[in-house]
Design a binder for these strands. Structure first.
Lengths: 226, 226
DNA sequence: GCAAAAGTGTTGTGTCTACACCCATGT
DNA sequence: ACATGGGTGTAGACACAACACTTTTGC
């Protein structure tokens, strides 16, 4: 047996900022890939789990408290990494809109439609993270991880539009999420702005942990099925 | 930096056998966990990808040609592994019903409802594999990976019943899969047995690579959406 | 003719989209 | 009064489950 590969973790951290879905990346100052932008992460330490590892590395970039959701994406061998033999496990992390983490000088938020030159396979990894987010917005309550604690339907709609990249009807968004029991009203309302308009009711997510709300129900068990 | 962990791959290989979903496991002859049953796999070699690695290790157990589908499940650090610091990436592999791979003496198929004592966390890994299979049977064409090249609806129904663990109506199975364009008829038919009955039409999967057939369509783009 | 197995017709239900309309506020 | 933004009523499209019924075979 030869030597072992280095094990590292990286994370695609996404947040809706300025009405666009953006990813947290930092600019490499040294070789390899000096000057290119990369996803935050680092090597695995003895005695820690993969999730502990990525949380520890992210702590250097964003306050870990501010991550509303974290899940594993995929693991791959870094083929032609000039840095040597490397196995990398990627995570998806989400930050809600009401937070604006303090980030180091080498780190930036970049809109997914306008990413700078990325190191390694990080571009593909970011796409996978976005795909996962978009899919789960449809059949889970994952919206809680992007939204603030309370919000109007209009605000929530803007978040969904940014994350999904296509128009979303406020009417239907409200109805789908209420019917499924994902949202509940707080009873309070937001006063209208200077230009008037009816006050908007405030809503919150009923639970802020991931739950499947739309059992892709086809071929579901029959009446008295086993 | 301390030493690196060992990187290994394992696979949950599933097949419908005797009307039940079964997993391929082998019995460990040595410590650690001597006598317990484990998922096939092994350590990563230099220069190979994770998928290449698990295919190479599986080749010792089943003919790799017989795997109709292979996808990554999850990566975890083997916490209290007496064998030392270890990172393990799990895969899900599927074998269609018409094949019966030759397997070594230490290896067995075991029905998922009656698994022997398993080593490490392999029990949880098998469950994750089954959950993934069951979910994807609902919203993808993954049935192709369990079914033979041609089959009657009754035969396909038996496979779905075994994999899903609940009753499935042949009528609705046929309609759902035809409506989605997952199945097509071959034009041929199967002659009835000695007890009579109408001859059954033969079907095949239109494509035998994974495709999503039921876009969890909620919140889909609007009419002229961006 | 009768049993067995396969397949179709048809009805009802629930979820979703679309769009018209009504409501509550500021100026 | 009217503009602005929020919310509801309602009709149509669609996919699905359930079940009755018809078709095609062997005996």
């Amino acid at each position: 047996m030869t030597a072992q590969p280095a094990q590292s973790t990286i994370a695609v951290v996404l947040q809706v900022r300025d009405g666009r879905l953006q990813a947290l990346v930092w600019q490499r100052a040294r070789e390899p890939q000096s000057g290119r932008w990369a996803l935050p992460g680092g090597t695995l330490a003895a005695g820690e789990s993969l999730e502990q590892s990525i949380r520890r590395h992210l702590a250097a970039k964003v306050d870990v408290q501010e991550l509303s959701h974290l899940e594993q994406l995929e693991t791959a061998v870094d083929g032609a990494a000039s840095a040597g033999w490397q196995v990398t496990t990627a995570y998806l992390g989400l930050v809600p809109t009401h937070l604006d983490p303090a980030i180091p000088a080498d780190t930036r938020w970049h809109p997914l439609e306008a990413l700078p030159p990325l190191a390694f396979d990080n571009g593909a990894t970011i796409e996978r993270g976005r795909d996962r987010l978009q899919a789960k917005l449809s059949y889970t309550n994952l919206g809680f991880a992007l939204a603030p604690p309370e919000f109007t339907i209009s605000e929530l709609r803007a978040i969904y539009v940014a994350a999904l990249g296509h128009a979303v009807s406020a009417t239907n968004l409200q109805r789908v999420l209420l019917r499924r029991g994902v949202l509940e009203t707080t009873g309070e309302r937001r006063e209208p702005g200077p230009s008037g308009g009816r006050p908007a009711a405030l809503f919150r997510f009923r639970t802020r942990t991931l739950a499947i709300t739309d059992q892709f129900a086809v071929l579901r068990p029959q009446r008295a099925g086993e």
